[in-house]
Design a protein around this nucleic acid. Structure first.
Length: 564
RNA sequence: UGACCGAUGGUGUAACGGUAGCACUACAGUUUUUGGAGCUGUCUGUCCAGGUUCGAAUCCUGGUCGGUCAACCA
């Protein structure tokens, strides 16, 4: 593939790779590259996080660096161990290894406290006794400068004393905060004396009741980066306006060596889905989906249950690229990535979703043949499975038309098709019920056309089938996109008083009771298959002996359906 | 309209003052015991207006459009 890697050939680098390449060339941080993935453990990871994970671990990998997993757990009222566990499982499942570098912002609470004392001593932070509402009012608006806090000019000694007493728990929640003393007239709202610490009498999932003051994100994040000797602190675009503050804190601490650098990129958006934690939570809480791992959810756990593979998600993250421009990726690209992956790796099987009986009139009553079927034509090593064939079969109702249009290559009266791995057949007649619905299709088979016999007879169509008496029943969940419009959050498409929920696709889940070939009888959960001519599927954890359940990952591309 | 950021085919993303390329999508052909997969090909693009330059997607100026920011959230 990479046959042109001469010295002249300039590799195509994204903007992050360019920055890092330059930093290495300039020997910044001694040429080290160290990134981190910093989730807040307050919810489940989604595909946007997956992009960030692939980015941070991928960059470290590419430049011989390291990537830390760091939980940004500075708000005890929102964070839980349950989410720590699920996040770790998801990152690992995606294929990344943080080795022994599992860190928590809460590990640094004492360090952060000492740093704050340092800043207070420099006269650059003060304890403010205004209420949250007062602070908000004093902050002004982007166009109007804020007003100074009456507590802004306390002595260093007084600030030190008050801050220590905050920590000791002498004050009520909300009564005091520590604020950086920056510029209440800054056009950047984040520089208008931002809060560094607030009082919260809350139990923290790791530090328990050791602390009653907790650092804010802006104060904790950059300093945590510094403590971990992070070189490139990569975050999403909305933190761009925080960067001056990120740098201000580093300056206030007189950090000159090993200064981490914040770089922002545009988060992932996907068509036909919503991505914000709040909206996903709404879907779960209102029962619009069946939990966080519902196969229609863009959560990592949902994608996993849907049947997306780690490799397909990594390939996707690679292909969407990374830049600073707002983007909406077509979900078709994601689907392409999983098809590409599963086409090479998923064994084939036959399953009939909407069966109609096909009877081969000239096939001996009671006879069964075991016919070999290639497990995966894309993989010569894959081998075969045996499929029973008999006089009565099920085929897909859609594969028969009594009065077909031109270019219909499937079965119709008088036409010939091949039954995959078996014989060419001709349709002779049909039997209908009182309502005119076809109940039986009668055919003649041609014994000399048996697959593998070297028969050169050609037909236009090939159908999948299962032997009626050998078929196993299975529950098959046909998933489709959760929303019926590309951008469900677009205000232009949402009437007043409504929200994205009106765009929920009512057909996003159809459950059918299918007939599958008997080889599938014993599959355990989590196995991928291609059901020939229909799509890729995975056996669901709901599968039990005697009750098979499959989820459709994605249908096969279908140029016939498209023409219809 | 306070500040900051961004703008390249339908969607993403490259091009670092010198041939606008790649992927997905769409379409066509080829092949095929999956109307799948594969292979080949085609269509469609530098937001606008000026300027600098032999030469501008790239640099400058001014617009336009889009995004972000006013939690004791992250």
């Amino acid at each position: 593939m990479n046959t042109t890697s001469t010295n002249e050939a300039r590799a195509s680098l994204n903007f992050l790779e360019q920055i890092i390449t330059n930093d290495i060339a300039e020997k910044k941080a001694g040429g080290r590259v160290h990134t981190r993935f910093p989730p807040e453990p307050n919810g489940y990871l989604h595909i946007g996080h997956a992009k960030s994970i692939c980015l941070n671990f991928g960059l470290a990998n590419k430049f011989n660096g390291k990537c830390n997993l760091r939980f940004d757990d500075t708000n005890p009222t929102k964070e839980e161990q349950e989410f720590v566990d699920s996040i770790k499982a998801d990152v690992r499942w995606l294929g990344f290894d943080w080795e022994d570098r599992e860190y928590y912002a809460s590990d640094y609470f004492q360090q952060l406290y000492d740093f704050a004392v340092y800043i207070i001593k420099k006269g650059k932070a003060y304890v403010c006794e205004m209420s949250a509402e007062e602070i908000s009012i004093h902050r002004g608006t982007p166009a109007i400068p804020g007003k100074l806090s009456p507590w802004r000019d306390r002595s260093v000694e007084e600030n030190l004393d008050l801050f220590e007493r905050m920590r000791k728990g002498e004050f009520a929640e909300g009564s005091h905060v520590l604020r950086a003393r920056i510029d209440m007239a800054s056009p950047n709202m984040h520089m208008r004396d931002p809060v560094m610490y607030r009082i919260m009498y809350a139990h923290h999932h790791r530090t328990g009741n050791d602390w009653c003051i907790y650092p804010m994100y802006d104060w904790a994040h950059g300093q945590s980066d510094y403590l971990e000797r992070i070189t490139h602190s990569i975050c999403t675009l909305e933190f761009e306006v925080h960067r001056p503050l990120y740098d201000w804190f580093l300056d206030a601490l007189d950090i000159k060596e090993d200064r981490p650098r914040q770089i922002e990129f545009a988060r992932l958006n996907l068509t036909y889905t919503v991505m914000s934690k709040r909206k996903l939570l709404t879907l779960v809480q209102e029962g619009l989906v069946n939990g966080w791992d519902d196969p229609r959810m863009p959560t990592v756990s949902g994608l996993r249950r849907r049947g997306y593979t780690p490799a397909s998600l990594r390939a996707f993250a690679e292909r969407v690229g990374v830049a600073k421009r707002e983007n909406v990726i077509e979900v078709g690209l994601l689907e392409h990535c999983i098809r590409e992956n599963l086409n090479r790796n998923a064994p084939r099987a036959m399953a009939v979703f909407n069966p109609v009986k096909l009877i081969i009139d000239n096939y001996p009553e009671g006879q069964t043949e075991e016919l070999p079927g290639t497990l995966n034509p894309e993989d010569p090593e894959s081998g075969q499975r045996m499929i029973p064939f008999s006089k009565e079969l099920f085929i897909e109702r859609d594969d028969f038309m009594e009065d077909p249009p031109k270019k219909f290559f499937r079965l119709s009266p008088g036409s010939e098709v091949r039954l995959k791995y078996a014989y060419i057949i001709r349709c002779d007649s049909v039997v209908k019920d009182d309502e005119g619905k076809v109940t039986e299709i009668h055919c003649t088979y041609f014994p000399e056309t048996k697959s593998g016999s070297g028969s050169t007879r050609k037909v236009k169509g090939t159908l999948h089938w299962v032997s009626a008496s050998h078929a196993i029943e299975a529950e098959v969940r046909l998933y489709d996109r959760l929303f019926s419009v590309p951008e469900p959050e677009d205000p232009d498409t949402v009437p007043d008083g409504k929200d994205f929920r009106i765009h929920l696709n009512p057909g996003s889940l159809k459950i059918v009771h299918a007939y599958v070939e008997p080889a599938l009888k014993v599959v355990e959960a989590g196995r991928h298959f291609q059901f020939e001519r229909t799509g890729y599927f995975i056996s669901d954890p709901d599968s039990k002996p005697g009750h098979l359940a499959f989820n459709r990952v994605v249908p096969l591309r279908d140029s016939w359906a498209k023409k219809q």
